[in-house]
Amino acid sequence: MAKKKFYLGFRKRQMLGGILFTLPFVIGFVLFFLRPLAQAVQFSFHELVLTSVSYELAPRGWSNYLYAFQVHPEFTRLLTEVLQDLATTTPMIIAFSFFAANIINQDFKGRTLVRVLFFLPVIMGAGVIMKLEMNDYSRIMLQHAQEGARFGGAALRNIFENSSIPEGMMDYVVGAAESLPMVIRSSGVQILIFLAGLQSIPRDVYEAASVEGATAWERFWLITFPMLTPLILTNIIYTIIDSFTVMNNELVLLIRETMLRGAGYGVSMAMAMIYFVAIAIVLAIVFAVLSKRVYYHV
């Protein structure tokens, strides 16, 4: 049996390998993703009534969706807010993590310590910890104590007040400065992805470039940057999906709240559906724009 594989043609090998390596996922996808997702779609057009033995579905048509958009007082506002937030913070997180990964990939004393620290927020900001943190008394006190930091934003605004910088751009810059701590704390994974990418760039490419007389600046833009472009795409996707699994996403909280205490399970599923479709559209656009500009080392 093993000997037969020697004579596999290129085509056949490609076929066989592809199926061999991806089959488990395809099975899992159908069983543990597609089926529940289809059920969730179905539920969003129904009202779920739990009985003592199982559950029953009462058909509702589009009314759950209409309710989310037209009747619910906050849903539409929160949806736009969450999407806007995503559009402003994602570029900041990508830029910062790219920059940070390049710095901690350099050789300097205490590098190990700095790397350990950069990853800390990933460990601290997940699941139940974030849930408890939101209500933590001493943490709220700390935030009040840090309120002073906000004045930094105001000072920045004063400095540029008389310049001809457009108002919108100014808001973005000031906003960026104010949300820097948040950006730093939510960049851990992205930094790690970039860092792992940096480490997988073969050294001899840099050596060859140096021999040919490339400066550090040229080496960065002609080697490092193109080699990392696939990971920029990875990180954008990660940042987006991270934003809806964090516990303080107001829309996710609203969906949960609706399910447990509000208009019911059907409406909450409809809300989640709308949110998902919105995210899918955003991602499709990002993908279409970026994937042509991504460089693959083949």
Binding site: A40, I255, M273
Partner: peptide, 11 residues
């Protein structure tokens, strides 16, 4: 990845 896990949790 894109589907919020909360969406399919009950099914």
């Amino acid at each position: 990845l894109m589907v919020p896990p909360q969406l399919i949790m009950v099914p």
